[in-house]
């Protein structure tokens, strides 16, 4: 991974990195990704990808509305809380 690619990934990650950080990150990620190449030794043709532990079951619950008691204190945690809303910098001109 070169610095230009690191810059692109940082943008996708919403991370703002300095030039020095990008250079260091590109080197470290290249080393780590190189190590990850080891996985190509494992044959996986026709193997279904496991995004969760093998025998995971997701039990269902009744779809019934219930009061959400901590709403107000949760909203108030925001530095931009205004009533029930969050104020953020302008997105569109």
């Amino acid at each position: 991974m070169d610095v230009r690619e690191a810059q692109k990934i940082a943008g996708l990650s919403r991370l703002s990195l300095t030039e020095a950080e990008l250079t260091r990150m590109a080197g470290q990620l290249t080393a780590i990704l190189g190590y990850f190449q080891k996985l190509s030794e494992v044959p996986t043709d026709g193997v279904a990808p496991a995004s969760h532990p093998a025998d995971m079951r997701s039990p269902l619950r009744p779809d019934v509305a219930a009061p959400f008691v901590t709403k107000d204190p949760l909203v108030q945690l925001s530095r931009g809380a205004e009533g029930e809303l969050y104020r953020v910098p302008r997105v569109l001109e």
Partner: peptide, 23 residues
Amino acid sequence: DLAGMYGATRRRFGDEVKRRIML
């Protein structure tokens, strides 16, 4: 702007967290 706020706020992450988010 909003993207600037995201980037500036997320500078608070440490090196390993940034590395893993990037990876």
